[in-house]
Amino acid sequence: MIVPLAHVLILAGIIFALGLACVIAWRTNVIMMLIGIEIMLNAAMLVAVGGSRLWGATDGQVFALMIMAMTSAEVSLALALVVYLHRRKKTVNADEFDSMKG
């Protein structure tokens, strides 16, 4: 282990916080919100890989790979949705799409 796990985790925490801040702050742009989600997922992958290294188990890496596959599926669907919604309202502002209001 080249650095203590805590440092890896703190780095992951910083990345995660940045991604969260991106999702919360960029409410006017769905694409930036999706980018924030990607950042957070990367933080999660970092945690998984770090744990895998620490305990010498392969599971962490497998999960990192799973996350990647899942992300690609999620991004493809989400971007398809963005295209679809943009076609309907000519905007990517997330707050414009509030037709599911209770």
Binding site: N42, S52, Q61, M68
Partner: peptide, 19 residues
């Protein structure tokens, strides 16, 4: 690169290719 440093070369490669 960090992934590679943490001993996960395959994940590092996939990170570059896929992400």
């Amino acid at each position: 690169v960090i992934f590679y440093l943490l001993g996960a070369p395959l994940v590092a490669v996939f990170e570059v290719i896929i992400y």
